[in-house]
């Protein structure tokens, strides 16, 4: 079965991912993503009932560090790469939504 990502879905995903996308690009990307998802459709169809998920190749557990203070960066190093700084802080345009 062919996967068809709609332009609306692409625009929703672009919004989630914070990527500005023109209407034209949305159509183009919908086609490309559909093609990729179509390709992985075989994997989606595999019957993997009972096979556990592997989220990581390692079987390590409990990797912990001691609660000891390490040197911080200097203020210059912290703010040196920032596009906009004000009063020792990172300046951003107004925020419309509250923190979720």
């Amino acid at each position: 079965m062919a996967v068809e990502l709609t332009v609306a879905e692409v625009r929703h995903v672009a919004r989630l991912a914070r990527l500005e996308l023109s209407a034209e690009e949305s159509v183009h990307v919908a086609g490309q993503l559909s093609a990729i998802l179509d390709h992985v459709e075989a994997v989606r169809a595999l019957d993997l009932e009972g096979i556990p998920a592997t989220s990581h190749p390692l079987e390590l557990v409990n990797v912990l560090r001691a609660d000891e203070v390490r040197p911080c960066l200097t203020r210059e190093e912290v703010l040196g790469g920032a596009p906009a700084v004000e009063d020792g802080r990172f300046a951003v345009p107004r925020i419309l939504g509250e923190t979720p």
């Binding site: 560090r65 000891e68 203070v69 390490r70 040197p71 911080c72 960066l73 203020r75 912290v78 703010l79 009063d87 020792g88 802080r89 990172f90």
Partner: peptide
């Protein structure tokens, strides 16, 4: 997740690391 001090009230952006 890092060795920066967990301290309230320091000057802005002085308790940070990569």
């Amino acid at each position: 997740f890092c060795g920066c001090p967990n301290r309230f009230g320091a000057a802005p952006n002085t308790q940070v690391c990569p």
